[in-house]
């Protein structure tokens, strides 16, 4: 029977059109803009020159913000992993009838606007916020403890945003592990800890790495937590892009910074895909 080769393409065409129009075309615009010039009054002048890229690397200011963004992203990944593995493991192990309800709790933050969630930390961590208020009332401190408008607050804001992504990725990976393998290990004399270390943990690593990649990429492009919860000096690369594009109407330079960030992330994702396979990330979104 002659295979109808065009059928899959026909079915994929709405998605491909959407991806092309909403992702590929805008990214191409950004890259093209990065070679343009900005006139003193804010008009964009078509050109092909590398001045915007040269400006980025002309001194250490812009690269230093990129480096601090990567540092914050790595810190966030580490904390998300630390705090995300345990609940994911619990979901995997538990036989509780409340498991679906507990899973919904992980998703619950997504039901509230990200801005509201981020702003709510101001009322929790602020000088007159919930924690300081309680500590002062209890007589444990006399002056408010500075918890807001610093890097710690930014990472806290990122954690509450990104932790569900990590938990779900790890859980999906754990859920795919045949539980009889753990039983087999134990029947061969492994302790609970040894079975976890030798069987469960290695088999869950694809989910761990997928979660790490997702959290890292999302952190690098995040904008709100540093703006709302950060203090002077806590801005990240996305805030810088915002300032160049919005503040000074310098779209070409803002596009150049965006392109540099994009290139960096593409390199990271490419490396990840080469060694781990990108498909693991999609499993978390469409549990097999």
């Amino acid at each position: 029977m002659k295979e109808k080769w065009w059928k899959p393409w026909l079915l994929l065409s709405p998605s491909l059109t959407a991806v092309f129009l909403l992702l590929v075309v805008p990214v191409c615009f950004v890259v093209v803009y990065s070679f343009w010039l900005r006139s003193p009054v804010g008009q964009d002048i078509p050109a092909f020159q590398f001045g915007n890229y040269a400006k980025f690397f002309a001194d250490f200011f812009y690269p230093s913000i990129l480096i601090s963004t990567i540092r914050v992203a790595l810190e966030t990944v580490f904390l998300c992993l630390l705090m995300g593995y345990i609940p994911a493991y619990f979901f995997y192990k538990t036989e509780s009838p409340f498991k679906p309800a507990l899973m919904i709790l992980v998703m619950l933050p997504f039901w509230i606007s990200f801005i509201i969630r981020t702003l709510s930390w101001v009322n929790i961590l602020g000088d007159s916020g919930l924690i300081n208020h309680m500590l002062i009332k209890l007589g444990l401190i006399s002056e408010p403890f500075a918890m807001l408008y610093n890097e710690g607050a930014v990472i806290m804001g990122l954690l509450q945003y990104l932790l569900p992504f990590m938990i779900l990725n790890i859980y999906v990976s754990l859920d795919g592990i045949d539980k009889s393998l753990v039983e087999a290990a134990k029947s061969l004399g492994s302790t609970e800890w040894q079975a976890f270390r030798e069987v469960t943990l290695p088999l869950s690593l694809p989910g761990v790495s997928a979660g790490c990649l997702l959290v890292f990429v999302l952190t690098c492009g995040t904008y709100l937590p540093p703006m709302i919860l950060g203090g002077p000096g806590n801005e990240m690369i996305a805030n810088l892009i915002f300032k160049r594009v919005i503040g000074t109407l310098d779209w070409p330079f803002g596009s150049a910074i965006s392109s540099i960030l994009l290139l960096l992330l593409v390199m990271i994702v490419y490396t990840y895909n080469r060694y781990m396979g990108i498909s693991q990330i999609f499993k978390a979104l469409s549990k097999e």
Binding site: P40, F61, P232, E235, L240, G247, T248
Partner: peptide, 19 residues
């Protein structure tokens, strides 16, 4: 002020970022 915008806004960003 408009003639200074690009240079001064960028310089200000650096100061605000502590660089």
């Amino acid at each position: 002020w408009n003639s200074k915008q690009i240079d001064w806004a960028e310089k200000w960003d650096r100061i605000m970022a502590g660089k």
